[in-house]
Simulated scan of single mutants.
Amino acid sequence: MSDVIVAPETRDLGELAGALAQWLAARMPHAREVWITDLAYPRGAGQSHETVLFEAHWREQGEERQQGCVVRIKPGGFTVFPDDLFVQQYRVMKALAEGGEVRVARPLWFEENPALLGNPFFVMERKTGRVPVSIPPYAREGWLKDATPAQRRVLWRNAVEQLAAVQRVPLDGFDFLAGPNGERGLAQEWDKYTRFARWLQQVEPLPILDAALERLRGLWPGNQPEGLVWGDARIGNMMFDGNFDVVAVMDWEQPSLGGALHDLAWFCVIADTMHGPASTYGAPLEGMGSREETVALWEHLAGKSAADLEWYEDFAKFKMTCTGIRLGHLRGAPMMDEATMAKRLKVG
């Protein structure tokens, strides 16, 4: 079960190795005899981008060298989100890697020409560690389930530290993340997901989404601290070493300048459903911080107030519902039943 591949699209890895070797050789003028080995799709994670791990080898100045790499390819037909933020994903990771406070894999090269792999792609360094995967759920089986409560406590604290570190990043130089009409702050995230809801309804009418938006609009939060949005903030998008410290914060495919509380809300909702009181995967994981502990630690480390977090959590559930509906459309899977959706969105 632990080696389930969930990549949205796959290809012949032998052909990919040859194409990448030629491409890398052109980008490393001092390299000789470039070759690629150990190509593999990640196990148990990654449902929107085709992502392939590999080892790059070459000779330089008479010595053999090696670099673990990851190639991330822009989605083609399997597009989960209406907004194309592939270039922004690369740029935000590059900026964060240069800043150093948020631990991300260092982007190495970007290729905008789709001729080689069918779509633009970028290559980044490969980090080594363990990820609490969603398939199978980490709360049901795997290394985190088998860890001690004390080890889980270390992991939780380190994860929240990185979550808060995102909110300490100065926003100077991130103007490229503004919305289509220059939106920033809550207005940007609100615009993104109201457009997402309209996009979904081109396939089928979903009045429940309109009702949920109306409800949220009527409860508009007063607390709107500025901040960078990671977009999919959860421990399942973090890699950890043997000491349960964070090696990398991953999957920056929907970044924005939408504000500090979106990621905290998303993190809390996911934590609750995956390993907390609302988990459907068994008893809560002892040692993982409660919602109250997570919020208190985040406020202390980020230096921002989490007032009105409940609104942002409801908005996060709306975002998750939109994403789930879209994934269902792509996979031909049945949508969540209306009663469950209404309860989740607090409408009806």
Rank of each mutant, 00 (worst) to 15 (best):
Gly185Gln: 04
Val160Cys: 07
Pro180Lys: 14
Phe196Gln: 09
Ala187Trp: 04
Ile208Thr: 05
Gly173Thr: 04
Asn181Lys: 12
Arg184Val: 14
Gln201Leu: 10
Asp172Thr: 14
Gln167Ser: 05
Ala159Lys: 07
Asp172Met: 03
Leu213Met: 14
Val169Met: 07
Ala159Cys: 05
Ala187Asn: 09
Gln188Ala: 13
Leu200Ala: 02
Gly185Glu: 08
Gln162Trp: 03
Thr194Met: 06
Asn181Trp: 05
Trp190Lys: 13
Thr194Lys: 12
Gln167Met: 10
Ala197Trp: 00
Gln201Trp: 06
Trp199Pro: 01
Ala165Arg: 10
Pro205Met: 04
Asp175Trp: 07
Ile208Ser: 05
Gln188Val: 11
Glu204Asn: 10
Glu189Leu: 05
Gly185Ile: 05
Asn181Met: 12
Ala165Cys: 12
Ala164Phe: 08
Arg184Thr: 15
Lys192Gln: 11
Tyr193Arg: 05
Phe176Ile: 08
Asp191Gly: 15
Leu209Thr: 10
Gly173Trp: 04
Val160Ala: 02
Asn181Leu: 13
Asp172Ser: 14
Glu204Leu: 14
Leu200Val: 06
Glu189Cys: 07
Arg195Ser: 12
Ala197Lys: 04
Pro180Val: 09
Ala211Arg: 14
Val166Ser: 00
Gly182Ile: 11
Glu183Asn: 09
Ala187Glu: 15
Arg184Leu: 10
Ala187Val: 15
Gly173Val: 11
Val166Arg: 00
Leu171Ser: 09
Leu209Phe: 09
Thr194Tyr: 13
Asn181Thr: 15
Gly179Val: 03
Arg168Met: 05
Tyr193Val: 06
Glu189Lys: 01
Leu177Gln: 06
Ala211Ser: 12
Phe176Lys: 07
Ala164Asp: 03
Leu209Ile: 03
Trp190Ser: 06
Glu161Gly: 03
Thr194Glu: 15
Ala187Gly: 02
Leu186Ala: 11
Ile208Asp: 06
Leu171Cys: 09
Ala178Asp: 12
Gln201Phe: 05
Ala212Glu: 02
Pro205Arg: 12
Ala165Asn: 01
Leu213Asn: 00
Leu163Ala: 10
Pro170His: 09
Leu206Glu: 07
Asn181Asp: 14
Arg184Tyr: 13
Val203Thr: 13
Glu183Gly: 09
Pro207Thr: 04
Gly173Met: 04
Lys192Glu: 12
Pro207Gly: 06
Asp175Lys: 11
Phe196Asp: 08
Val160Phe: 01
Asp175Gly: 13
Val203Cys: 07
Gly185His: 08
Gly182Val: 07
Phe174Tyr: 15
Leu209Asp: 03
Glu204Cys: 14
Arg184Phe: 06
Gln162Ser: 02
Gly179Glu: 01
Trp199Thr: 10
Ala178Met: 11
Glu204Val: 15
Pro207Lys: 04
Val169His: 01
Gln167Leu: 10
Gly182Gln: 05
Ala159Gln: 01
Thr194Asp: 15
Glu161Pro: 08
Asn181Tyr: 08
